[in-house]
């Protein structure tokens, strides 16, 4: 649309362009109008009218304007503008239009304010980040150290059971913990029918002996207040039992289809994962494990 783009359509020698101009001039003369009268009516220069009539479109501001001038001129002369415009290149047909101003340089202007801002802010941001890192690291180690050992043991009960259980076992002589050990080492010798006489003795539990033997002297005393818990696992589920002081009596993962028996002394609190697939019997009677809503972890207290 710039002047240079208008050049192709404005070669004065082109027969089409001269014929457009000729038509206009002949019609004007036939109607007895002078160039200045036409220029006055169209609010154009006489020079521009002459350029239109002689087909020197390069002297006109551009294709879009030339077409408009031609249309106005044709209307003034009361002739159809369409054949005249057909001689001109359509505005859309030309080269793609330039929308951004011509440029022969690249680069960004230095921004004084922003530079200073950056220099002063970057160290501050770095310091804040370092400080934040230190705080996070300190908090992390702090919580890691404070975390009780039993909680760490929870996710993999089988492997760490021994470590976690060591202390409670020694503090409380009458533990039912041997069970886990027994499960791991089913080959344990010497059946011990003695201790858990109260309820029917389930098979896998029989090897309770291994440890109950050394503490046997204390056993009869404790026997009276003890309960026998039997867990039947339809699916894999973990079980954690704490006594009234909050110490973990035992905590382990029961395999699907297995059955576990423990002796505990009430009151205890139980946490059972995947509780819908675990059946709990206390001294032979079925205990209902409450699982509120969608929660699959059951919590209950036995007195």
């Amino acid at each position: 649309m710039t002047d240079s783009q208008a050049v192709p359509s404005s070669a004065p020698t082109s027969s089409q362009d001269t014929s457009v101009g000729d038509t206009l001039r002949r019609t004007r003369e036939a109607q007895g109008l002078s160039i200045s009268e036409v220029a006055n009516a169209l609010k154009l220069n006489a020079r521009q009218i002459e350029a239109l009539e002689s087909g020197r479109f390069a002297q006109l501001p551009g294709l879009a304007f030339t077409r408009g001038f031609l249309r106005n001129y044709a209307r003034l002369l009361k002739i159809d503008a369409a054949p005249l415009l057909a001689g001109l290149q359509a505005p859309d047909a030309g080269e793609p239009m330039e929308l951004a101003p011509a440029s022969n340089a690249h680069g960004d202007m230095p921004q004084v304010g922003r530079g200073r801002f950056r220099r002063s802010v970057i160290p501050g941001v770095l310091a804040a980040l370092v400080l934040f890192g230190i705080v996070v690291a300190g908090w992390y180690y702090d919580t890691l150290r404070k975390k009780p050992a039993e909680e760490l043991a929870l996710p993999a009960p089988d492997a760490q059971q021994g470590v976690a259980e060591g202390e409670p076992a020694s503090v409380q002589p009458p533990p039912a913990e041997p069970a886990p050990k027994a499960a791991e080492a089913p080959a344990a010798p010497a059946p011990a029918p003695a201790a858990p006489a109260a309820a029917g003795v389930p098979v896998p539990l029989s090897p309770t002996v291994t440890e109950s033997a050394p503490v046997n002297p204390a056993a009869p005393a404790a026997e009276a207040g003890r309960d026998r818990l039997v867990f039947q696992f339809a699916q894999d589920a973990w079980v954690e039992v704490k006594d009234k002081s909050g110490k973990v009596v035992f905590s382990r993962l029961g395999k699907a289809g297995s059955e576990e028996t423990f002796d505990i002394s009430a009151p205890v609190s139980l946490v059972i994962g995947n509780a819908r697939n675990v059946k709990l019997q206390r001294n032979g009677t079925l205990v209902d494990i409450p699982t509120p809503g969608k929660v699959t972890v059951g919590r209950l207290k036995l007195d």
Partner: peptide, 8 residues
């Protein structure tokens, strides 16, 4: 409208 918007 085909005006030379980018020109000076």
């Amino acid at each position: 409208a085909g005006m030379p918007v980018a020109d000076a």
